[in-house]
């Protein structure tokens, strides 16, 4: 992504996710609390079954991966779409407790966003 600054220069954001500096604290908290979350092999069964996916671009598999790569900015917006119907849980071949992952993600992301707001307020 590029955007023009005041002087007409283009500042380009990094093209790759730095796994060295990514914030994985949220991911680790969930991985620790819900051990089955570690079992995901990204088969996509969950997203394929997803009821909210009938209407939106909500992709729980991708959300889970983004979390594990520390890419948190867009996640809470995506998670708002989840209907919590439980089809993903039934589709998952590895027994990931998807619904608890979603619940916990929503709670932790909410907290994380509040902290960001507080930080920006201080600035």
């Amino acid at each position: 992504m590029t955007e023009n600054n005041l002087f007409g220069y283009k500042i380009s954001k990094p093209r790759s996710i730095s796994m060295d500096s990514a914030d994985l604290s949220l991911a680790h908290e969930i991985l620790d609390k819900i051990p089955t979350f570690r079992l995901c092999i990204s088969c996509g069964g969950c997203t394929s079954a997803c009821t909210a996916g009938n209407f939106t671009d909500f992709n729980i598999r991708r959300v889970n991966l983004m979390l594990r790569r520390g890419q948190l900015e867009t996640l809470s917006k995506e998670l708002k779409d989840c209907m919590f119907c439980g089809k993903c849980y039934l589709a998952c071949p590895h027994g990931v407790n998807t619904r608890n992952v979603i619940l916990m993600m929503k709670e932790l992301l909410y907290e994380w966003e509040q902290n960001i707001d507080r930080r920006t307020e201080k600035l």
Binding site: F55, L79, K80, D81, M83, K106, E107, Y110, E111
Partner: peptide, 12 residues
């Protein structure tokens, strides 16, 4: 959740 959570939005 006592600490709040992302509220769902099904307006879509």
């Amino acid at each position: 959740s006592p600490f709040g959570t992302v509220t769902p939005d099904f307006s879509y």
